[in-house]
């Protein structure tokens, strides 16, 4: 995660977008991130997965991610290509799951009025700002607490714990991108 992130916004201005909308329970029979990514936001925006590009942002209203504790919601969004969620505020388990995964979720009250879907957004972690490049406006997000910064810097809860307990952390194998076909991963000639 660099200190400046840039991408396009997908705005869901409603409050209380819940984990059943982010990843419906009918897909909880797997925890394969790439598989989950195919169904991200399916029940609120069936076109989301066909529009989303690597590095995009989800922008939402209050209480984003309420409902179940399924971490699958974070995995689905991240694996679909989302690099950061910006919401007015979050339900606690979603927020916790995001940080634990080293996945940035920043809080910015009123943000849904400042960004339209398709706008280009730049989030500067050091300055604590969200710039709407398309509109030329800038907002400040709520500062991250020292603990959150430390965990994000470590890359999430597991590497953070590994450091505290003197363990070695092995990252999970990278999640294949949605649009990468198996054939493209095969060396030529096979």
């Amino acid at each position: 995660m660099g200190s400046v992130m840039r991408g396009r916004a997908h705005v869901y201005s409603r409050a209380h977008i819940n984990t059943d909308e982010i990843i419906p329970a009918r897909y909880l029979n797997t925890h394969d991130h790439a598989e989950l990514a195919k169904h991200a936001m399916e029940d609120i925006d069936p076109e989301f997965v066909s529009r989303v590009q690597p590095g995009d942002f989800v922008v939402a209203g209050e209480d984003f991610g309420c409902g179940s504790s399924r971490e699958h919601a974070v995995w689905a969004l991240r694996s679909a290509g989302i690099q950061c969620v910006i919401a007015a505020n979050y339900a606690r388990i979603f927020f916790r799951n995001s940080l634990n995964n080293g996945f940035l979720a920043v809080e910015c009250p009123g943000i849904v009025d400042k960004i339209t879907s398709g706008d280009e957004i730049e989030v500067d972690l050091e300055k604590g700002t969200i710039r709407n490049v398309t509109r030329g406006t800038e907002e400040a997000f709520l500062p991250l607490t020292p603990f959150v910064k430390e965990m994000l810097a470590a890359g999430g809860l597991l590497p953070y714990i590994a450091r505290r307990h003197g363990l070695e952390y092995t990252p999970a194998p990278p999640v294949p991108r949605l649009d990468v076909k198996l054939s493209q991963l095969m060396p030529a000639g096979r």
Binding site: S68, E71, I93, R96, N97, N100, L157, L158, I161
Partner: peptide
């Protein structure tokens, strides 16, 4: 418990809260 309705157990005067899978891994390990 890796489940949001873990709050149920608070009826016994216990602190009980729902967590995700990464939390669960950390809890089980440490």
């Amino acid at each position: 418990c890796g489940d949001s309705h873990t709050t149920t157990l608070g009826a016994f005067g216990a602190f009980a809260s729902g967590i995700g899978s990464t939390d669960l891994a950390a809890a089980l390990a440490t």
